[in-house]
């Protein structure tokens, strides 16, 4: 039977820390709204919409990672690579809002925590891992696949560390945070492998169809209209 995917519920993290997280998440969203306004245009906006819908759907598909444990896509790395870090973080934040408000997935008081961990952190980490990697190794089909895999793989355990930090400051559990950290990181490295695969397959599919629609490689593609002479003159 299907059990709901579970984001942080009400009650894991105390009120004050949850409230501070909500303020930070709101600030983050404002920054992302401004950034996305700069980075999006009329051609890329529908892609951002699609990415949000796609991540919502994929988050429903929990995959097994170890005996009696499952994981699901977080999506921030995928979103950031395809539509840029600002619009990407916004896309995941909208997913978390709809999940919390419509499907009671994730506590309402924990919505700030969930937006920080799954929206902001994964988008930022995924973006930088992808960009650093692709700049170091160059752009080609297998290299884009590899860089996207790495971005998803790393974003998930870092996201779980954000939870550990929140737990260390305001966790209601009695078990110490170092124990929680070991357990969270371990299982989320496994989930990261699934995240990396879904991220890489999706980014590669878009890259094959329209490389210019992959925001993370757009500025690295060979220009279609080359104006060679003036460039030589300048050099």
């Amino acid at each position: 039977m299907h059990v709901q995917t579970m984001h942080i519920p009400d009650g894991f993290i105390n009120g004050p820390v949850s409230l501070v997280a909500m303020v930070i998440a709101a600030l983050g969203i404002v920054i992302c709204l401004r950034g996305a306004r700069k980075q999006l245009d009329e051609r890329t906006a529908p892609m951002a919409g699609l990415v949000a819908v796609f991540i919502f759907a994929m988050q429903m598909l929990n995959f097994p990672v170890a005996a009696g444990t499952s994981g699901h896509l977080l999506g921030g790395a995928l979103a950031a690579i395809l539509v840029g870090p600002y619009a990407g973080a916004l896309a995941v934040s909208v997913v978390i809002l709809v999940q919390g408000l419509l499907f009671a997935d994730g506590g309402l008081s924990a919505i700030g925590l969930n937006i920080i961990n799954m929206g902001l952190v994964t988008a930022v980490v995924g973006w930088f891992v992808f960009r650093w990697t692709i700049r170091a190794i160059g752009v080609s089909k297998p290299k884009v696949f590899f860089a996207a895999f790495l971005a998803g793989l790393i974003a998930v355990p870092v996201s779980s560390l954000a939870f550990v930090l929140e737990y260390a400051i305001g966790g209601t559990g009695t078990i110490g945070w170092p124990t929680v950290m070991v357990a969270m990181t371990g299982v989320h490295i496994l989930i990261g492998i699934g995240e990396g695969l879904i991220t890489a397959l999706t980014v590669a599919a878009v890259f094959l169809a329209r490389p210019d629609l992959v925001y993370g490689v757009r500025d690295l593609l060979p220009k279609q209209v080359l104006v060679v002479e003036p460039a030589k003159g300048v050099a």
Partner: peptide, 12 residues
């Protein structure tokens, strides 16, 4: 979809 608890739920 897998009905097993997810990463966070399992740790909790």
């Amino acid at each position: 979809a897998s009905s097993s608890p997810d990463g966070l739920e399992k740790v909790a």
